[in-house]
Simulated scan of single mutants.
Amino acid sequence: MNESGDLVSDLATVLDLFDVSVLALLALGGVCLWALNWGIQHLGHSLMDRVPARRFLILQLTTLIGFAIYTLGTGALILGVLNPPREFILAAAGSIAVALGFALKDVAASLVAGLLLLFDRPFQVGDRVTFDDTYGEIVSIGLRAVRVQTLDDNLVTIPNSRFITDVVASGNSGELDMMVVTDFHVGLDADLQAARDIIEEVIVTSRYAFLKKPVTFAIEEVAVAEYLAVRLRAKAYVLDVRYEKAFQSDVVLRVTGLFRERGIARPRELRGESA
């Protein structure tokens, strides 16, 4: 009888915690948290339009604020609205911990990895990163996953745990500018100095170029399919990562036209003779 009475008493305590008014307050509190986070994100986008030079900093701050709102707000709602007994909190926490440990092992690993990413910061929101076959911009770093917007406008979600063990490359490491590498191939008998001068002229006159950092070249002979060529690898910086492909396209289009106009020889097909 005592055990049955205790069980009934526990059930009654739980039911008292979740009456209609309490559930209504929890729902209202959840809507308020969502609205507050939406307002912060909207304000962040407005600030980014007004102060584009601080776009990355604003993105990072809004991400952290949104995380804090949901985490602290949810805890405050549970403790403030439900106001559960201390024994109930301990028992519920133990039960939840055991259940989540078995059912959400992979999710828990991603949560821990997410915290490590926030402190270690191998990359930041707004960075252009390469991960496996995915290349794009980090648009959010959550507790469970990182979301990457590819240049084809696909949103790729990658679990945080993969970033702890796999290699990821960041192209700009929190900076607005980023190096863009563009290859040009010319024939072995081409005027290499003239070709180099043309490429450099086009780059420094591009409206997307960031000229506070140098334009450099790496030149070497290479075999491309059935062609023997000299590769001129131009390394220049774009002023904003959003213009990466626009910058590269601008340079390639104008260089190609000038090569044709000024008679810069392109690679010749190999026919068994040395070029």
Rank of each mutant, 00 (worst) to 15 (best):
L59C: 09
V51S: 03
R231P: 08
L79R: 03
R260Y: 07
A229L: 11
L82K: 00
W38P: 00
S140P: 10
V129Y: 05
I264W: 04
L36V: 15
S206I: 11
L7E: 09
R254S: 07
A92C: 06
V20R: 00
E137V: 14
D240S: 12
L7S: 08
I264E: 03
T182Q: 14
L232V: 15
R196S: 15
R231S: 13
P267W: 11
D250W: 06
V31H: 00
V186D: 09
M178A: 14
G136P: 14
L115I: 14
T71C: 07
I264L: 11
T71D: 02
A113I: 05
G73L: 05
V168Q: 04
L239C: 10
L116Y: 07
G73T: 05
I69Y: 01
E273F: 10
I141D: 05
V112T: 09
V215W: 10
D120A: 10
T74F: 03
L176C: 04
G136Y: 07
L90P: 07
V167T: 15
L11M: 12
P52L: 03
R121V: 11
G126A: 03
A190Y: 07
F184R: 07
V98T: 12
F102I: 15
V255D: 01
G101Y: 03
G66M: 04
Y70A: 13
L36H: 00
V224P: 09
I264K: 05
F102N: 03
L17V: 02
V186P: 11
L155V: 12
K212C: 00
A169Q: 14
L59R: 08
R86D: 12
L211R: 13
V22D: 00
L111V: 15
T134H: 08
L61P: 01
M1C: 05
T62I: 06
G66T: 04
D49R: 08
L33T: 02
V255K: 10
A246P: 04
S206F: 09
G142N: 13
R144Y: 03
R254F: 02
A236F: 13
F18L: 09
A209E: 09
T13Q: 12
S21F: 06
G136R: 08
F217E: 05
S249M: 12
L64E: 02
D10L: 13
L23H: 01
A236D: 10
T182W: 04
L258S: 04
T74M: 11
L192E: 09
G44N: 06
G29F: 06
T165W: 08
